[in-house]
């Protein structure tokens, strides 16, 4: 088990899933200082993939909802006439826009959590394991269990939802 972990960790560090290209134990024991290790990981394909997956979702989504919110506030203050236009019964444009703000917030929350669970969590956990082995920090495996448990629960809740 430990051997397997170490191999997958090292391969994650090298940015490939092929064991042939993995660093071996003697490579790891080379005396690298912590900044070197982090720079090496940062340059690796595996980390660049995690980072770009995060940014490709979070940045456009953040820009989109901030624009949508500012548009809502500016319209409400600058064009109350437009917002007062009735739609159906007591419902007008302003009420619909307000409820839509609530709805998009819930929707984006769900989408972000799902994206992180499916596309980011497993790869990030591999990298965390890899860096920890490299830097030889005190990491008894308890944190890995916690991280894994949280991800597992989040996956199961996602299936129920």
């Amino acid at each position: 088990m430990e051997n397997h972990d170490r191999r997958s960790a090292a391969s994650a560090l090298a940015g490939t899933i092929q064991p042939a290209r993995a660093l071996t134990a003697p490579d790891i024991s080379r005396a690298l200082t912590a900044p070197d290790i982090y720079r090496e990981v940062q340059r690796g394909a595996a980390f660049r993939e995690v980072r770009s997956r995060y940014r490709r979702f979070a940045f456009p989504a953040a820009a989109a909802f901030l624009l949508w919110y500012l548009a809502y506030v500016v319209t409400a203050t600058a064009a109350p006439g437009l917002m007062a236009r009735p739609v159906a019964g007591a419902l007008n444009v302003a009420m619909l826009a307000g409820l839509a703000q609530f709805a998009t917030t819930f929707l984006l929350t769900w989408a972000y959590a799902r994206h992180a669970r499916l596309h980011r969590d497993p790869a990030a956990l591999e990298l965390r394991w890899a860096v920890t082995l490299e830097t030889r920090q005190e990491w008894t495996g308890q944190e890995r269990t916690q991280e894994w448990t949280c991800q597992e629960q989040s996956r199961r809740e996602g299936e129920h939802a």
Binding site: P35, V41, Q42, F47, V50, L127, V131, T132, T135, Q137
Partner: peptide, 16 residues
């Protein structure tokens, strides 16, 4: 650059 790498890697992976 080294400490920026550390911040970036730690923030996205949870290492350390």
């Amino acid at each position: 650059a080294g400490r920026h790498a550390e911040t970036e890697v730690r923030s996205l992976t949870g290492a350390g």
